[in-house]
Design a protein around this nucleic acid. Structure first.
Length: 301
DNA sequence: AAACAGGCCTAAA
DNA sequence: TTTAGGCCTGTT
């Protein structure tokens, strides 16, 4: 495992978890690589930079000091119930990196992995991941963030954030809304949130989930990547890229390999025409994130 | 001002 | 089966 010890405490009425001796964990790279849209960096009054946002029904703040990571806003029960997996701490990135490198001698991949080591694939909630990436199409990241945040404020239930003002929480913070809540909004209201042509995609997916016509359990237990992706792509507005992102970031399918314009460029330039992501093995999606972030570059917002 | 932003759908070869 | 346009909206 990639850490030595986890302990818990509380201060100023805020519970926290402390992960010590972490390796392959870089909060900046994790939260600033385009995989999630609800976290932003915040500098506390005592000068600590943290990544803060709502996930798992609560507002949390992640602070990293070298090999020590503190997660504010979670107690032991929440932590093992959600945030441990959310932060990818159940995955062994030392082993993942070795596996990736054992399958490819591509110099660009080695370079990217070396430069971007510390990225971990967040295990986000399934619907949040799917819905967010439906929204992402033909949008840039700042706008995706603002649309997702508008949606949460419009119909998400309040996220627990007591005592978290010192970590950048506003008076009210909101969890990502359930499919039912989004379905109830209707296409009109979704449109009013400036989601544009995606409004009917979002609504259709929300209804399919709420009615159980699309079943995430079934997607999660699909025998192959292709089957899982096909179930998601039955939804209007969900193509190969959005499905891959949902599976990678929401279902823990680390073999999912989203191909967007950047990755297309990377493949063309460094890998060649007959590139097959399957060749990168069961952690191809992790490799994709290394390559993607290395190529694109992020500046921390 | 025109082009583009982490795609997808539809129509047409 | 593959390939062009068009698409809401906002920013540069």
């Amino acid at each position: 495992m990639d850490y030595e010890k986890i302990s818990f405490g509380s201060g100023n009425g805020v519970p926290f978890a402390v992960i010590e001796g972490v390796r392959h964990f870089d909060a900046d790279r994790i939260f600033d690589c385009g995989q999630c849209f609800r976290f932003s960096s915040f500098v506390t009054s005592d000068g600590h930079r943290e990544w803060c946002g709502a996930a798992g029904g609560k507002y949390i703040a992640v602070r990293q000091e070298d090999r020590k990571v503190t997660v504010f806003g979670t107690d032991e029960q929440d932590f093992y119930g959600f945030y441990h997996a959310f932060l990818g701490l159940g995955d062994d990135y030392g082993a993942i990196n070795r596996d990736i490198l054992s399958r490819s001698d591509n110099p660009r991949l080695l370079e990217a992995l070396t430069a971007e080591d510390g990225i971990r694939i967040l295990k986000q909630e399934r619907w949040e991941a799917l819905c967010s990436f439906i929204i992402s199409q033909n949008n840039n990241i700042p706008r995706i963030k603002s649309l997702v945040s508008a949606l949460c404020e419009r119909c998400g239930i309040p996220a627990e954030c007591a005592g978290m003002e010192a970590h950048g929480a506003k008076e009210k913070e909101y969890a990502f809304p359930s499919p039912g809540a989004v379905a109830e909004l209707g296409v009109e209201e979704l449109s009013a949130l400036k989601t544009g042509f995606r409004a009917e995609y979002i609504h259709g997916a929300a209804v399919a989930l709420a009615e159980g016509r699309t079943d995430f359990e079934s997607v999660a237990s699909a025998g192959s990547y292709a089957e899982a992706a096909a179930e998601l792509m039955a939804l209007r507005g969900v193509g190969p890229k959005v499905a891959a992102c949902a599976l990678l970031f929401g279902f823990g399918r680390l073999d999912a390999f989203p191909v967007d314009v950047w990755v297309k460029r990377i493949i063309a330039r460094y890998f060649g025409e007959n590139f097959d992501p399957c060749g990168l093995g069961p952690y191809a999606g992790v490799a994709q994130q290394y390559l993607f972030r290395y190529e694109r570059g992020f500046d921390g917002n």
